[in-house]
Amino acid sequence: MNEVQPQTSATIRTRSTFWRRFTRHRMAVLGAVILTLLAAACFGATLVAPYPRDQQDLLLGPVAPSAEHWLGTDELGRDYLTEILYAGQVSMLLAISVALIATSIGVLIGAVAGYRGGWIDDLFMRVTDLFLVVPAIALLALALQGLGHSPLAIIIVLSLIGWTYIARVVRGQVLSLREREFIDAARVIGATDRQVLVRHVLPNLGGVIAVNVALAVAGTIIIESTLSFLGFGIQPPESSWGNMLSQASGLIGTPKVYLLYFPGLFILVTVLAVNFVGDGLRDALDPRSTASSASSRGYS
């Protein structure tokens, strides 16, 4: 009818508003920066670490933090910072994999159960209950006894146990989303079940999913420490923040107790940063959080 001005495609704008909303969240930006630096340091440890991996200096022995060894050394004279960075590779990889896999399983099961309802819902939710009632630690210990203690085994086992919570949350959300009128509207214009799920249900779960991934990353790091402490986690000589923590726990009450604090500090900072990023993502994924005063713009 009138002139048709070439517009930037809607997706590009969506992405830029997403970025704007995310950067408004200062703690989220800070969290993202910290996480990026930590990840870069850990995965680039071969370049960044002050000493080669596992380089022992038996004559030196354990020393307190100093200019040469920022975080000190352990009994075998290995640089503790170097060790923490390499251990971080395992911990981060593990946490991110478990968080993504467990969330994907949970979202899939929860969304299908909530959307389909009926016997599928009953079946899926009873299975979820089953996972929830069995004590996770006992199950983990048992499973890892059988599968061994490799990082891969731990990822598989933690993922298979971790999906239940998000499945329940997503099911509840989908149950309420399903009754919303825009879902009916999508059916009227001809969307199939799958298209409704992908185009309307999942995008509206974005915030819940983002928060859950963040929680799961944090939770996994902590569970992995617990497992290591109990002797079911990553085993030496392979190291993770969790098992460094558990190894250093014997030092409580000695002057070398700082060896306990450092891995703990790395865990704490990572968990906090991930949670802030999760919060920021949740807000950024919700168009309503912009709340710009546009109620009467563009009426012709």
Binding site: Q7, A10, F182, A185, H200, P287
Partner: peptide, 10 residues
């Protein structure tokens, strides 16, 4: 209610 809050008008 009948418009998806996550979609732009376009």
């Amino acid at each position: 209610a009948s418009l998806d809050p996550r979609q732009s008008v376009g």
